[in-house]
Write a protein that binds this DNA or RNA. Structure first.
Lengths: 145, 145
DNA sequence: GCTTGTTAGTTACAATTCCAACTATTACAT
DNA sequence: ATGTAATAGTTGGAATTGTAACTAACAAGC
């Protein structure tokens, strides 16, 4: 049983997380949006493919927690821009393998470099331990069912 | 200059923040959504009024970083449900003072109690220092311009 | 008084997202 | 083999959000 009288909702973790997430996303969004006309879901799909190489849409879903309709639409737009190619699996023709084109690879590398810089700026005031602890806690929070 | 070769985008702070924020929001959303048919922006407006008492829409905007159209629409819906009342300011008739009705107060108290419990569950694995540090870092990240 | 500029809040329309239903294909059990 | 269920991914329409333009009221300078 928790007393709510002395609980300050301003300290509510989901609220703080959303504020921090929105603030930091908005700034980085400028990069992939203004430079490449991409949406957040497209950037996410792109970077999953950049990290893991060839994947199916459901692989991405499993890794990213993104809903399959978001993935489907992001993949469509990335395919239109020729950042990735889709290949039907011979063994199971429901499945499509997604692979970055070399143009897609280049965009990924560029965005990754910018992300690295921006991440460094975000963790600027923190000690190395603090930054590491923050990431660990965020991962734990994201993973909880 | 940051080397991006050894930067793992999976550790990218905006990404982790979004994952954690989405995961934790989704669970709490069930409460205000299923129980009171509210959207996230409405819950946010409600809890600002719960904390600070009477406020104007722009007060809420300044505190919450929410865009004014979000606030405007959230206020409309909360007013329809009779969770708040709007009063024109005599001195400056552009301004409206927003105040929770007693029904709104009750909803706020209930949601606040649930939030307290949920927050306790989220910080369950953490030490008191870790939780405090996390909140501080999130506040800093949210506040950066 | 009359411009010109600013601020509070709303509205319109386009872009996104959500949700549920859908197609196509495979798996599995009888 | 045949009916039933499960899975991969797509699509349509409703709900929500974003963006920019808008109204109304105030403020300041002339």
């Amino acid at each position: 049983m928790v007393k709510s009288d002395d609980f300050d909702v301003r300290q509510f973790l989901p609220y703080l997380l959303n504020q921090a997430a929105e603030a930091s996303s908005l700034e980085f969004q400028k990069v992939y949006k203004d430079k490449y006309g991409m949406l957040r879901n497209e950037w996410r799909v792109l970077f999953h493919l950049g990290i893991y190489g060839q994947m199916t849409a459901s692989d991405i879903g499993a890794r990213s927690q993104m809903h399959k309709t978001k993935i489907s639409r992001a993949v469509q737009r990335l395919a239109e821009r020729r950042y990735l190619t889709r290949t039907r699996a011979e063994a199971d023709r429901r499945v499509e393998y997604l692979t970055l084109t070399s143009a897609g690879q280049r965009v990924y590398q560029d965005l990754k470099a910018t992300a690295a810089e921006y991440d460094a700026a975000l963790t600027d005031g923190m000690s190395r331990q603090e930054a590491a602890l923050l990431r660990t806690m965020l991962e734990r929070l994201a993973a909880r069912p």
